[in-house]
């Protein structure tokens, strides 16, 4: 098993956990955490992909930095919107945010 594969298995594990969390978590914050897990798994995968192949490792590092930065920005936004949701719907559970249907 090559090192790259090992890293990517870990990353895929994170993806799986994240997806699982998205599906099963009842609270919006929980879903956010799951999403962050996935994003960080992606970052890991990116760094491993460049570091352990002949691709330029700087590319991967920069990309991973951007992923972190944007993940944080995304988290900020999600939290801000969760605050709005909590204010308007009086709840931050997923059951509350299923009004729109059809």
């Amino acid at each position: 098993m090559s090192p790259l594969l090992m890293y990517q298995l870990v990353a895929l594990g994170l993806l799986a956990i994240g997806l699982f969390g998205i599906v099963w978590r009842k609270s919006l914050v929980g879903m956010l955490i799951s999403v962050e897990l996935m994003l960080n798994g992606a970052g890991l995968s990116i760094v491993a992909s460049t570091q352990l192949t002949e691709a330029g490792s700087a590319t991967g590092q920069i990309a991973a930095l951007f992923v972190m930065g944007l993940a944080a920005a995304e988290a900020t936004l999600v939290l801000a919107i969760i605050v709005v949701v909590a204010k308007r719907l009086k709840s931050a559970e997923t059951d509350a945010v299923s009004r729109l249907k059809g």
């Binding site: 990517q8 990353a11 895929l12 993806l15 994240g18 997806l19 998205i22 919006l28 879903m31 956010l32 999403v35 996935m38 994003l39 798994g41 992606a42 970052g43 995968s45 990116i46 491993a48 992909s49 990309a63 992923v67 944007l70 995304e74 936004l77 999600v78 919107i81 969760i82 709005v84 949701v85 204010k87 308007r88 719907l89 945010v97 299923s98 009004r99 729109l100």
Partner: peptide, 23 residues
């Protein structure tokens, strides 16, 4: 509010998938 949270959460998932693909 509901639309926004749905859009962003699933958007983030899609982004994550895209990033895995990128890697």
């Amino acid at each position: 509010a509901e639309a926004a949270i749905k859009y962003i959460l699933f958007g983030a998932v899609a982004t994550a998938l895209a990033l895995y693909g990128f890697s």
